[in-house]
C-alpha cells in the first residue's frame, strides 16, 4: 500500500504545510482517510495529498547551507546604518542643507523619535 504525504492549510492565505502521512491504496482513499487523521479537530480549511514516490527529494543539505559570505542577501548584512545616517545628517547640517518644511508631527526634524530610529538601526 502506498504512503501519501498530507499537506494542510490553516487559513486560505497559508501555503501548504506538511502535517503528516497516511497509508492508502489510491488517491480517493488517501483523501478520505487524511481528513479524519489530521483535520478532525478543525485544524484547517483545506488539505492535499501527494504520493510519497512523487515527492522528489533534493537530499543535499550541504548544498543549501551558505559556504561563503552571503550576508548581502540578508537584512543582517546591512549594518552600521545608524552611524552612516548620523554622518550624512551631520554633513547636511554642516552645509546648512537640512530642509525644514512642514511635515507630519511625528516626523519632526532630528527629534527624539528620529534618534530612536537610528538606535534601532545600529
Amino acid at each position: 500500500m502506498d504512503r501519501w504525504e498530507v499537506f494542510g492549510k490553516r487559513t486560505l492565505d497559508d501555503p501548504w504545510t506538511s502535517v503528516g502521512a497516511v497509508h492508502a491504496p489510491d488517491r480517493e482513499m488517501a483523501l478520505l482517510l487524511a481528513k479524519e487523521s489530521f483535520f478532525r479537530h478543525g485544524e484547517g480549511v483545506d488539505f492535499a495529498v501527494v504520493r510519497l514516490d512523487d515527492l522528489h527529494v533534493f537530499g543535499r543539505s550541504d548544498l543549501l547551507a551558505f559556504a561563503t559570505d552571503k550576508t548581502y542577501r540578508l537584512q543582517a548584512g546591512y549594518t552600521g546604518m545608524g552611524d552612516k545616517r548620523r554622518r550624512a545628517t551631520a554633513k547636511a547640517q554642516a552645509a546648512g542643507a537640512v530642509i525644514d518644511r512642514p511635515r507630519p508631527a511625528d516626523k519632526r526634524v532630528l527629534n527624539t523619535s528620529h534618534r530612536r530610529r537610528e538606535a534601532a538601526d545600529d
Binding site: T89, A92, I99, R101
Partner: peptide
C-alpha cells in the same frame, strides 16, 4: 522627511504637509 533630513531636496516647490 527622510530625504529632507539628509539635506536632499525634492524638485516640487509646493511639497509640504498641510497640518
Amino acid at each position: 522627511p527622510k530625504l529632507w533630513d539628509l539635506g536632499i531636496s525634492v524638485p516640487d516647490p509646493a511639497l509640504a504637509y498641510d497640518e
